[in-house]
Write a protein that binds this DNA or RNA. Structure first.
Length: 262
DNA sequence: ATGGTTGATATTCAA
């Protein structure tokens, strides 16, 4: 049975409840993974989403920061929540569908402004988080699994608006790209979005700080959909809903979609 | 080289 999945950094699920419900009504993915909910689970408006046909969820939250949730039309059960690198942050939750497929929803640390762990603790935490992801996938290699989320790294030259200009900007530095590649390789993860759309500039995030984001188009592809090789070939119809970046009082991220025929 | 915006919370930090 095919299902469509979307991942979206919502940047406060309480402030943008109406944007989430718009996405659920207009696009109706079977599963929606949210990051940066910025609320404890009990303050997430989960009843509103249930009323729209999404009664199933797993979530981890905390006051003010981070927070991840998986909303679903399809039955699911919780399949764990990791605290990689011991940060004590709500950055991961996993769910298992009835067909056995496990969905991992990640919010990787942004890493601060300076790409040097000697002077910026947050950058070190980001690298350590990615190393912990690598080690976890190496210890327990995933099968029939999907990984989505805001990974806060744009790995390819055509995942950013200017590769050379961003080489020293956090999210596109070579050391981050290498750490992400090691986490990806350890799980055998296939980049579903790029398998589907191999060529061309592709962005899922545009800074709030850039006026006229649409015309300037200085974006980065920070949000990803990965799958293990045993199910990656079932994926198709990948797309990024750029229009959502232009909705009223938007998130700075756009939702990323993929459909799996499983 | 710098500053630009946003959200949660508190009078700044994180992104």
């Amino acid at each position: 049975m095919p299902f469509t999945l979307a991942t979206w950094n919502i940047n406060s699920v309480r402030l943008r409840e109406a944007l989430v419900t718009r996405l659920l009504r207009e696009e109706a993915p079977d599963i929606l993974c949210l990051q940066e909910c910025k609320a404890p689970v009990e303050k997430m408006p989960l009843e509103a989403f249930a009323a729209l046909g999404y009664p199933w969820y797993v979530a981890r939250g905390q006051k003010g920061y981070n927070g991840v949730a998986i909303l679903s039309k399809l039955p699911l059960e919780e399949a764990g929540a990791a605290d990689h690198a011991g940060l004590g942050h709500a950055r991961h939750v996993a769910a298992r569908l009835e067909n056995g497929v496990v969905i991992h929803n990640f919010y990787v640390p942004a890493g601060g402004d300076t790409p040097d762990r000697e002077v910026n603790v947050k950058f070190g935490q980001k690298l350590d988080y990615l190393t912990a992801m690598r080690d976890a996938f190496h210890a327990d290699r995933p099968e029939r699994a999907i990984l989505v989320g805001d990974l806060n790294i744009a790995p390819r030259e055509d995942d950013v608006w200017n590769h050379k200009q961003l080489l020293k900007i956090v999210s596109h530095t070579p050391i981050e790209v290498e750490h992400l590649a090691q986490a990806q390789d350890a799980g055998g993860w296939i980049d579903v979005t790029r398998a589907d759309i191999p060529e061309g500039l592709l962005y899922s995030w545009w800074s709030y700080r850039s006026p006229d984001w649409d015309a300037a188009d200085k974006g980065r592809r920070l949000d990803h959909v990965w799958a293990t090789p045993d199910i990656a070939a079932a994926a198709h119809s990948s797309r990024i809903l750029r229009a959502a970046r232009g909705w009223t009082q938007p998130s700075d991220h756009a939702p990323v979609f993929a459909t799996f025929d499983l």
